[in-house]
Simulated assay, not measured.
Amino acid sequence: MSRETEFPIHPQFTERWSPRALTGEAIELPTLLSFFEAARWAPSASNVQPWRFVYGLKGTPGFEAIFASLVDFNKGWAKNASALVAVISAETWLPHGTTEPLAFATHAFDTGAAWASLALQAHHAGWVSHAMGGFDAAVLRQGLAVPAGFHLNCVVAIGKQGDKAMLAEALQAREAPSPRKPLSEIVAEGRFSF
Rank of each mutant, 00 (worst) to 15 (best):
M1F: 07
R3L: 11
R3E: 10
I9T: 03
I9F: 00
P11K: 07
P11W: 03
Q12T: 09
T14P: 09
L22Q: 10
E25R: 15
E25G: 14
P30A: 00
T31G: 06
T31Q: 07
L33D: 13
F35Y: 03
A39N: 05
V48K: 04
P50W: 07
T60I: 07
F67D: 00
S69P: 09
L70M: 13
D72T: 10
A78W: 11
A78G: 10
V87R: 11
W93F: 15
W93N: 09
L94R: 12
G97A: 14
E100A: 08
A103H: 09
F104Y: 15
A105N: 12
A108C: 08
T111M: 09
W115P: 13
L118F: 15
L118H: 07
A119K: 06
Q121V: 04
A125R: 12
A125L: 11
G126M: 12
V128N: 01
S129Q: 14
S129T: 15
D136R: 00
L140S: 03
R141F: 15
R141K: 15
G143F: 02
L144A: 05
L144R: 09
F150A: 01
H151Q: 12
V155A: 00
A157S: 13
K160G: 13
M166N: 09
L171T: 04
Q172P: 04
R174D: 15
E175P: 05
A176K: 14
E185Q: 08
E189W: 13
E189T: 13
F192L: 10
